[in-house]
Structure formats: C-alpha cells, structure tokens
Design a protein around this nucleic acid. Structure first.
Length: 154
DNA sequence: GCCAACGTTGGC
DNA sequence: GCCAACGTTGGC
C-alpha cells in the first residue's frame, strides 16, 4: 500500500537549531514538541519521505530557510524520561509515552530565506497555516501547491 | 522588550 | 464543564 507523500512546515529557532546546523549534522531527531496538536500530527500523520519546509521562527527575518525530509516516523521521545532534561515530563508513563520525536534529514538550504512577510503577501498562500494570525503550531500541514509556491519564491 | 494570541491549568 | 489566571510563542 502506498501512502501519499505529505508536506509539512516545521519551526525551529535558529539560535537553538538552524538550517545550517541541520546541514552540518545531516540528520537529527526533532525533539521538544510538547504541544498536543503538533504531537498528534507527528504521531499519526508524519511519515518517512515526507517533505518539510524548515522554518526559522523568532528570527530576523523569520521565514522558510530550507528543505528537509522525514527520515524516521514517530518513536518515543527519550527526553520525557530524562530527569536532567528540560523536557522531562514527570507524568510520562513508560508503557504509554505521550511524547514522540521524528527524525529529520537535511535536503537543502534555500538560496535565501523566504520571509514571513513575503509569504503573507503571496495570494497563493492565503490559506497557508503559517500566514494566519496567531499561528503557533510548530508542526503544520502544507499542501503540495503551497510547498511548490514557497520554493518558487526563491 | 512589548504584547497579542493561544494553550494549559486548576478552582469552583 | 466553565472560565479566569497563568505561561508560552513568536512577530514586531
């Protein structure tokens, strides 16, 4: 059975982990998601091979900085059990871990950051989640048309 | 640094 | 189950 490839936008603060960091390490586990809506997407919908717009949040400028790919589907986030981790969750049960991570691999860095202001100004992206007011979700679905439109803006 | 938007928590 | 208080996100 073939599952259609999906596309996502994933936010990262570049001061913590940037597209250049991903380019250097090639692959990383996408940890620290502690929001139920984002968790549900990671757990249920994000699959190997899915394409990702790597978005720099809390950055100057904020915007899409590169492309990544899902290298491994959801598995339990080890940091939820690590008492020394800032992501430790005392309520996390070993037999039913609430938090998951996926692995993300580097595909390419865009020649320039496509800024949020540009995304908002593009009528083709009017329905894109990240352009909506108060859009805080750190893992967002992106349509194939939106994905192509963003890359075409570079 | 400010603050609007949003999610979560907890008292009732 | 409601909702006020609180904490966080993230653009500006």
């Amino acid at each position: 059975m073939t599952v259609a490839k999906r596309r996502w936008l994933m936010k990262s603060e570049p001061s913590v982990f940037s597209i250049d960091d991903l380019a250097r390490v090639k692959r990383t586990s996408w940890d620290s998601v502690r929001n139920y809506q984002a968790r549900n997407l990671l757990r249920d919908d994000v699959k190997v091979g899915d394409e990702v717009l790597f978005y720099h949040s809390s950055a100057d400028p904020a915007g899409v900085a590169g492309v990544a790919r899902i290298a491994r589907a959801a598995y339990p986030d080890p940091s939820q059990f690590d008492k020394k981790s800032e992501y430790f969750d005392p309520k996390a049960a070993r037999d039913a871990p609430p938090w998951v991570v996926v692995d993300v691999e580097f595909v390419r860095k865009l020649p320039r950051v496509v800024t949020l202001a540009e995304l908002k100004a593009n009528p083709a992206l009017a329905e894109m989640v990240v352009t909506k007011r108060g859009s805080r979700l750190s893992v967002q679905p992106v349509t194939a048309a939106e994905f192509a439109a963003v890359l075409a803006m570079t």
